[in-house]
Amino acid sequence: MKQRSYSNVRLLAAMAAVLGLSTLSASAMHIAEGYLPKTWAFGWMAVCVPFVVAGFLSIRKKVERSPRAKVLLAMCGAFAFVLSALKIPSVTGSCSHPTGVGLGAILFGPTATTILGLIVLLFQALLLAHGGLTTLGANLFSMAIVGPIVSWAVYMALKKAGVKPAAAVFCAAALGDLLTYVTTSFQLGVVYGNVAEYLTIFAVTQVPLAIAEGLLTVVVFNVLEKYSAAELRELSVL
């Protein structure tokens, strides 16, 4: 009996290692092309439509008010792409990539982030094969809609409650990140009926990453506050 439970533990550990390590790889955050069945793929796209339309209208209003906004928004989009290509230091020693969800949402607001996210995800799908065309809806929903809205809401609520800015930024980024992972594992799990399995894998591997990204976002904000208060005011973050 004892022998068997040992072998079980070993099996479980090996499984956790295999599953865990590869979720840390860059493309793992994005649901690959063709993984979702048609109903789910198009369902998630339909869910995204109102958010994309709202984002598009808000961006158009901004651009109409000042044409400079278009160039600056484009820079922000390119920044989001580059950010997701950087390696983030992780507590466990392995490397992953920041999602930039929290930073983007706090800097540009959730509606603009949706549109920038749409373009960045399309580029990632075609250029790097991270994600895909038919899974664009699902990826957009987790990374450019749920994550940013959560981050932004947390940041605004904590700021209003008078929490220290650093703490507010940390909570916003870490929670936005975490909710993005939870949404992704839900999207993956609900199709084949193993949500719990995915959530366990994600909880083990992604919680440290969410914390690392939260810390990183705080550092970024401190530097930005020190050197570019004018730009932040223009973005109406401060």
Binding site: L72, M75, V223, Y227
Partner: peptide, 25 residues
């Protein structure tokens, strides 16, 4: 240190992007 340096990197890239955007405009 990684966190600090990564923070420097990200914020500097953002700053440069913003200013470059201004210049492009």
């Amino acid at each position: 240190k990684s966190l600090d340096h990564m923070g420097d990197l990200v914020s500097l890239v953002f700053l440069r992007a913003w200013r470059k955007g201004d210049k492009v405009y």
